[in-house]
């Protein structure tokens, strides 16, 4: 079988350079009944995030008397992938939910709301590699929309190693046939990357490749951060003008 070439003439399959993101579209406050919500497209990923709370914890024994608990549900719609996915949580989505929740827990000021819960639901309507990063970006914007106090904003992006080259924000072909991929989530405060809230890796990379990937991810995250800000601004600026 002829080997699939993922990089040709210094360009990727969809014509992007190595350090280019896929087009991103963010809409804030799309769900009427949710306290905060966000619809986000990152290339061919389409995700919807909803935030509820702080609200009463059910079942009651999960409540923490000293702080709020954060619950995160990453769920893929059966029609989000080419082959129908069996509905419901599976090993993969449970793990992604856990690590994503832990990333957001670091910035949400849970101590302000004892004995309550902040629920975050992210639904993947269409998946195309890096859906966990798209979900985190959407969840982060939805949390801001819900007015939940946070220390900063979480922005997430992945890097991958494709044909020996480190590339930003891999798409499906690169994720499936590449050598490695590494999703990141950063805490951004005051326009600067403060810390890494999530880091996973599939495949192998050398020490230098990881370093190179981190730099690439930081650059990509700053671009996404600006888009997240713009989306929130757009929603609330127009509302102000209507008043």
């Amino acid at each position: 079988m002829e080997e699939l070439k993922l990089i040709m003439d210094g360009k990727r399959l969809d014509g992007r350079g190595f350090d280019e993101l896929r087009p991103i579209k963010i809409e804030v406050g799309v769900l009427k009944r949710a306290d905060g919500s966000c619809y986000l497209e990152m290339g061919r990923n389409k995700v919807m995030a909803a935030v509820y709370g702080p609200r009463e914890v059910h079942p009651k024994h999960l409540a923490d008397p000293s702080k709020a608990i954060v619950r995160y549900r990453y769920n893929m719609a059966p029609f989000s992938v080419e082959e129908r996915k069996r509905p419901g949580p599976d090993r993969r989505s449970v793990e992604i939910s856990k690590v994503s929740r832990e990333a957001l827990e670091t910035i949400i000021m849970t101590e302000m709301f004892p004995r309550s819960a902040v629920d975050i639901f992210v639904e993947i309507l269409q998946a195309d590699a890096g859906s966990r990063t798209a979900c985190l970006n959407a969840a982060s914007v939805a949390l801001v929309d819900a007015g939940i106090p946070m220390k900063g904003i979480v922005t997430s992006v992945a890097v991958a190693k494709v044909d020996g080259q480190i590339v930003l924000d891999p798409m499906k072909e690169e994720d499936n046939y590449g050598e490695a991929d590494m999703p990141f989530a950063f805490v951004i405060r005051n326009g600067k990357i403060e810390s890494i809230a999530l880091l996973q890796m599939d495949g192998n990379m050398t020490r230098d490749e990881v370093k190179q990937g981190l730099e690439l991810a930081k650059k990509g995250a700053m671009e996404i951060y600006q888009l997240q800000r713009e989306a929130i601004m757009k929603k609330y600026r127009t509302e102000e003008e209507e008043e």
């Binding site: 306290d35 000021m109 801001v144 819900a146 007015g147 106090p149 946070m150 220390k151």
Partner: peptide, 20 residues
């Protein structure tokens, strides 16, 4: 800690949140 407008009153700085 929240998105909103900055309000300064009597040397106290606060943010009027987008959603309370």
């Amino acid at each position: 800690s929240v998105a909103g407008k900055v309000v300064m009153r009597d040397r106290v700085i606060s943010v009027e949140p987008v959603k309370r």
